[in-house]
Amino acid sequence: MQQILVNQNAITETRAVTTQAEPLAPRQARLAIESFALTSNNVTYAAAGFDIGYWQFFPTSENGWGIVPVWGTARVVESRTDVLSVGTRLYGFYPMASELVITPENGSAGLVDAAAHRAKLPLIYNQYTPVKNGPASEDHLRALLQPLLATSYLIYDWLQDNDCFGADQIIVGSASSKTGLGLCRYLFEPKERAYQIVGLTSAGNRAFVKGLGHCDTVLTYDQIADLDHVPSVYVDMSGNSTVKAELHGTLKHQLKHSSAVGLSHWNQFTPTTPLEGPKPQFFFAPSQVAKRRQEWGPGKIEAQITAAWKRIAASASDWMDVQVHEGVEAAEGVYAALAKGEADPKIGAVIRP
Rank of each mutant, 00 (worst) to 15 (best):
S317M: 09
P135K: 14
V70E: 02
E105M: 13
Y153P: 03
V235I: 14
K256Y: 10
F58E: 03
A47H: 02
S264M: 10
N63A: 14
V261Q: 01
R80H: 11
L84K: 06
S98G: 11
K310R: 15
D216G: 02
E302K: 11
A74S: 10
A29Q: 01
S259Y: 10
P353I: 08
I52S: 06
L263R: 08
H140L: 05
A74V: 08
I224N: 07
Y234C: 00
A303I: 06
E329T: 13
T250W: 11
F284K: 03
H214P: 08
P95L: 02
A337Y: 12
P231A: 08
T129S: 13
L38R: 04
I102W: 01
K300C: 09
H265R: 12
L255S: 00
A245Y: 03
P353R: 10
T179R: 11
R142Y: 01
K300G: 05
A307W: 13
S35P: 03
Q223A: 03
R193M: 01
R185W: 12
S177K: 04
S241L: 06
C164R: 12
G249M: 01
T12L: 13
I305C: 05
T179A: 14
Q28S: 09
H140Q: 09
G211R: 12
Y153I: 05
A290T: 12
R193F: 01
W309F: 11
S315Y: 12
R293N: 15
N41D: 06
S238P: 00
K120Q: 14
A115D: 11
I52G: 04
T242D: 15
T81S: 06
G199L: 06
G107S: 07
A307K: 15
E342C: 02
P104Y: 04
M1W: 06
L181R: 12
W158E: 11
S174W: 07
R206D: 06
G249F: 00
S79E: 11
G173S: 08
G72E: 00
S174E: 09
H257D: 10
E138V: 09
T81K: 04
K340D: 08
A74L: 07
V328Q: 00
E276D: 14
A316V: 06
Q268A: 09
Y186H: 13
V350D: 07
V77G: 10
S177N: 02
G327C: 02
